[in-house]
């Protein structure tokens, strides 16, 4: 089966599975839930390192004709929640990549531990938020062996959604971070985002 769209749904921790069930009922074939963390938009709390919130990121692949129904089911499933911190966005997969979208998703994959410095720099450059996922590097053929175990690199993936202009500023700020100058420490790439939906209680 060929999928045309990737839907990312970012919700408070614990809601990912429920929404996945609803999307399945609406026609999606499945979904994958990542557990990540985000930050509240409060300066003081961030300074005190108390702004963390746990988030689920649900990744759903859909075809052209499923897109509307699945998106509607996500909006529906989260309608009772507060408006804060929840959103869904749609990333096109291959085909004619639209380069004229207004929003971009920046993905940064780095060795574990740098996420906070990156988020801090991104915020200074205008990012409104971001989600940090824990990940592991792939098993390369030359993975290092040590006694009975194989050692693979630990990674963090940071997802930041931003307007096109801000996205450029954010990328510049991250590239200039002094702690990220070592070659091979990570990669950064962007995907076009064709649609962003704020989830939660409908605006009055």
């Amino acid at each position: 089966m060929n999928y045309d769209w990737k839907i990312f749904t970012v919700v408070p921790h614990g809601h990912g599975e429920k929404i996945a069930l609803r999307t399945r009922a609406a026609g999606a074939r499945g979904g994958t839930v990542f557990v990540g963390r985000g930050e509240l938009d409060s300066r003081i709390l961030r300074f005190l390192a108390l702004a963390d919130i746990e988030r689920d990121v649900l990744l759903t692949l859909v075809t052209d004709d499923q897109l509307e129904a699945v998106l509607a089911s996500i909006v529906d499933a989260t309608a009772y929640r507060g408006k804060k911190e929840s959103m869904a966005f749609v990333v096109p997969m291959g085909g004619d990549v639209m380069t004229d979208t207004e929003q971009e998703m920046i993905s940064i994959i780095v060795n574990r531990g740098y996420a906070d410095d990156i988020m801090n720099a991104a915020r200074k450059a205008g990012a409104k938020g971001g989600t940090i996922l824990n990940a592991r590097g792939t098993g390369k053929p030359d993975d290092e062996k040590f006694f009975g175990i194989t050692i693979v690199p630990e990674k963090e993936e940071i997802l930041i959604l931003a307007e096109r202009e801000t996205a450029n500023a954010i990328r510049d700020a991250i590239e200039k971070l002094p702690c990220l100058t070592t070659p091979g420490i990570g990669i950064m790439f962007s995907s076009p985002v064709s649609r962003v939906v704020q989830l939660g209680r409908k605006a009055k």
Partner: peptide
């Protein structure tokens, strides 16, 4: 040699 923000977080913790 943790990056500065992370070490700050740990200390606060």
């Amino acid at each position: 040699r943790l990056p500065p923000r992370l070490f700050r977080r740990i200390t606060l913790g």
